[in-house]
């Protein structure tokens, strides 16, 4: 039990996928333009991560080690397509909201990274906890990046159509650069520096 708790909490801060492991950076840069996107991406990615971690933990003893990476990729890609089809068929509203993120999950190296580094070595229950922990870690990191980019890039903060706050002065002349990819690099780079600094100070 202690072990499971540790697997769960590790992904949230100590081995945060984005800020510490530097995994899943390309979807993080691509969709962190608004809070809604961050949450949509997190939900979709966590679901696929959970599925792939479980399957890979189950079959880990049978996978020949020379071809493990292609096997993982086939499993992840299959899972992503299944999720996409199921959402389109059974939850069209959710699919309309998440649809554009789903193809991005295939290129999320966080999922392949966890398959290789964790699920292919540990049992099913530990892999589930790892997936949930890493999912949450991915979520808050993405939310933090989006928060900064949305605030500076649009001068306001909205959450599923609800206007939360606006910054007077900035909302008329927002720093649009933060919505562009280079703005994403600025924000992620500075946050990475901050987390490295905090780590070094400890």
């Amino acid at each position: 039990m202690r072990c499971l708790n540790k697997d769960f909490s590790a992904g949230i801060i100590r081995f945060n996928p984005i800020f510490i492991l530097l995994l899943g950076l390309c979807p993080a840069l691509a969709v962190s333009t608004s809070l809604d996107n961050a949450i949509g991406m997190t939900a979709a990615a966590t679901f696929v991560l959970l599925g792939s971690n479980i399957i890979i933990a189950v079959i880990r003893q049978y996978v020949p080690k020379q071809v493990r990476i292609p096997v993982f990729i086939v499993i992840i890609a299959t899972l992503v397509t299944i999720v996409d089809l199921l959402l389109q068929g059974f939850a069209p509203a959710l699919s309309a909201a998440l649809g554009i993120f789903i193809p991005l999950i295939v290129v999320n190296c966080m999922i392949l990274g966890r398959a290789e580094a964790f699920a292919s070595k540990q049992g099913v229950s530990r892999s589930i906890m790892d997936a949930l922990g890493v999912g949450i870690g991915f979520g808050w990191a993405l939310a933090l990046i989006s928060l900064i980019r949305q605030l500076l890039g649009t001068g306001s903060l909205s959450f599923f159509g609800q206007q939360l706050l606006t910054i007077p002065g900035l909302v008329e002349e927002p720093a649009i650069i933060f919505l562009f990819p280079m703005g994403a690099f600025f924000v992620v780079g500075l946050l990475l520096a901050l987390f490295k600094w905090l780590e070094a100070k400890k």
Binding site: R60, P64, K65, V67, S120
Partner: peptide, 14 residues
């Protein structure tokens, strides 16, 4: 832990 290394036939089959 994946440690077993196997012949090419098994790999192809898998």
């Amino acid at each position: 832990m994946i440690k077993r290394s196997r012949g090419s036939f098994t790999i192809l089959f898998f």
